[in-house]
């Protein structure tokens, strides 16, 4: 417990900022260049998690529990979003028999 408490003070804040930027960029690149809808959903989860990590780090460094409550709400929203997203994916597989995201490009018009 005491070692963990010192870990908050030892690890600088910038490290967490850089780590979550890297994770967010990896998720962004994946969402941009993959075709598979299910992997795009997973990349969205990755981006959610990088933001969650950053919020938690700021919250712990500033001793404010409000940030962690926000992380809790982001998790709730992510769970709801994944439920509806996977239902849409099942519909898409059933209707066009593919999970290629380019099959839905007709939705643009």
């Amino acid at each position: 417990m005491k070692e963990i408490v010192t870990a908050i003070q030892v690890v600088p804040m910038e490290h967490y900022v850089v780590l979550s930027m890297i994770l967010f960029s990896i998720g962004l690149a994946g969402a941009l260049f993959r075709h598979n809808t299910i992997i795009i959903l997973m990349c969205l989860e990755l981006m959610f998690n990088s933001v969650n990590l950053l919020l938690t780090a700021f919250s712990a460094h500033h001793s404010d529990p409000g940030g962690q409550v926000f992380v809790f709400f982001i998790m709730l929203v992510a769970a709801a979003e994944v439920t509806v997203g996977l239902a849409i994916l099942v519909m898409m597989k059933r209707n066009v028999d593919s999970i290629d995201i380019n099959q839905l490009s007709r939705l643009k018009w």
Binding site: I4, V5, A7, I8, V11, I38, L41, M42, E45, N49, N52, L53, T56, A57, S59, A60, Q68, V71, F72, M75, A78, A79, V82, T83, L86
Partner: peptide, 25 residues
């Protein structure tokens, strides 16, 4: 999260993400 001493979030994260969302995937 555990390194940041956010124990509640660590447990909720394991339960919600690893236990529910990824199993759904």
């Amino acid at each position: 999260y555990i390194l940041l001493n956010a124990q509640f979030l660590a447990v909720v994260h394991i339960i919600v993400y690893t236990g529910a969302i990824m199993v759904l995937f």
